[in-house]
Simulated scan of single mutants.
Amino acid sequence: MRVYLPSTLPGLSQVVASGRLGPAPLVGYAVTPALIEWYVSGDTEELEYVALTEAARASLRMLAADRADGVTVPARRVVVAAEVPDRAVSVSADLAERGKVRVNEPVTLAVMASVHVDEEAAEPDIEAAISALPAADRGDEDARFTVDGADAHELLWYATQEIQYLIR
Rank of each mutant, 00 (worst) to 15 (best):
L5P: 02
S7L: 02
T8N: 06
G11K: 11
S13R: 15
S13D: 05
V15A: 09
R20G: 06
L21I: 14
P23E: 12
P23R: 15
A24I: 07
P25Q: 11
G28E: 03
T32E: 04
P33S: 03
L35Q: 10
L35H: 09
I36H: 05
W38V: 12
W38N: 09
Y39Q: 13
G42I: 01
T44Q: 13
E46M: 11
L47R: 01
E48Q: 15
Y49V: 10
L52N: 02
L60W: 01
A64S: 12
A64W: 04
A65Q: 13
R67A: 13
G70Y: 03
V71E: 08
T72P: 01
V84G: 06
V84L: 06
R87I: 12
R87T: 12
R87K: 12
S92D: 05
S92P: 08
E97K: 09
K100D: 00
V101K: 01
N104P: 01
E105W: 06
A110D: 08
V111N: 01
M112R: 01
A113S: 12
A113H: 03
A113F: 00
A121P: 00
P124M: 13
P124H: 12
I130P: 09
A135L: 15
R144F: 05
R144I: 11
F145R: 14
T146K: 05
D148M: 14
D151H: 07
D151V: 14
A152P: 00
L155V: 09
L156R: 15
E162N: 06
I163V: 15
Q164R: 14
